[in-house]
């Protein structure tokens, strides 16, 4: 049983890395604008679909890398545009909440478009790397790739937010939006940039994880849910929280299916969410602070 749990742990980490990346992407947008982009799940699926459509059956590693950048850039622009449109009618993204509807609407539009283009069936994306044996079990390489991607994105984001002027300014938005405005920061532009960054993360994640995510018109919602739970458990707006929250969700989901049965997966996750909210509403890594808006 310990052996099986070890296998599940490895896969849970891989799956959790996807949730972490979704949570990171949630956080970047949330930090700058207080907006939760509910279209993220379908944006991830869209990236996976692009991977499936663009990659030839026997894709080479170099072509795969090029396509990854192409899909990353496409979604950076697309999500930045989504951000601009979401923010356009708002005077203040923290006091007005039309984004609740507009991000949902974008999610529905993407889902419907996938349905029209692809039909109701799931598709699979070609992958240049074969599975690897871990603990005697064939493990999809995408799990390893996406874990490496998580580390890379996390480090890059940290450096960006601490070292670059734009990054520091985005951190500043998270801390005090009114002060940021009074300081003369170009708030809208920075918010659109953060939408773009979130699009880049989702695009590359969806592409790299394509073989292990469900690429179907209706699967976005489960990724939104898991990514959101990961973000809340770790602490909304906290990058360390996102890094740790994803694997917690992934491993918990998988081991509860193994120990108690697949029907308990969601129950365990939601119980975890409620427990964290009751005991530590700011999340594991969040700090209680009075946020000026």
């Amino acid at each position: 049983m310990a052996y099986e749990l070890a296998i599940i742990f490895v896969r849970g980490l891989g799956l959790g890395a996807i949730y972490s990346l979704i949570a990171l992407s949630f956080n970047v947008v949330y930090m700058s604008s207080g907006i939760l982009n509910f279209a993220q799940g379908n944006i991830l699926v869209l990236a996976g679909l692009l991977a499936a459509l663009l990659s030839p059956p026997e894709v080479s590693v170099s072509l795969w890398l090029v396509l990854m950048l192409v899909v990353g850039c496409m979604l950076t622009l697309a999500v930045a545009a989504q951000g601009a449109m979401t923010l356009a009618p708002l005077r203040s993204s923290t006091e007005q909440h039309s984004w609740l509807v507009s991000t949902m609407a974008v999610s529905v539009i993407i889902g419907a478009s996938i349905l029209i283009v692809q039909g109701p069936f799931a598709v699979t994306a070609p992958y240049p790397f074969p599975g690897v044996r871990i603990l005697g079990v064939r493990t999809p390489f995408a799990y390893l790739a996406v874990t490496a991607l998580l580390v890379l994105c996390f480090v890059a984001l940290q450096l960006f937010l601490r070292r670059t002027r734009t990054g520091v300014a985005i951190s500043a938005l998270a801390q005090d939006l009114e002060l940021a405005r009074a300081t003369g920061l170009r708030v809208r532009l920075l918010q659109v940039v953060s939408f773009g960054i979130s699009g880049a993360i989702l695009g590359v994640t969806g592409f790299v994880a394509a073989p292990v995510i469900s690429i179907a018109p209706d699967s976005g919602i489960s990724y939104i849910l898991s990514g959101f739970i990961a973000a809340v458990i770790g602490g909304m707006g906290n990058l360390y929280g996102a890094l740790v929250g994803g694997p917690i969700v992934g491993v918990m989901a998988m081991s509860s299916a193994y120990l108690f049965g697949g029907e308990f997966q969601n129950l365990v996750l939601l119980t975890l969410l409620v427990a964290v909210l009751m005991v530590r509403p700011q999340g594991l890594f969040g700090r209680m602070s009075t946020r000026h808006v």
């Binding site: 296998i7 209706d218 998988m254």
Partner: peptide, 21 residues
């Protein structure tokens, strides 16, 4: 043993490992 899964789950390792027991 009996196991269930959500539609379009992408990883059924835990369910099948548990049934294998």
């Amino acid at each position: 043993g009996t196991q269930e899964y959500a539609y379009r789950a992408t990883d059924l390792t835990p369910q099948l490992l548990s049934l294998k027991r």
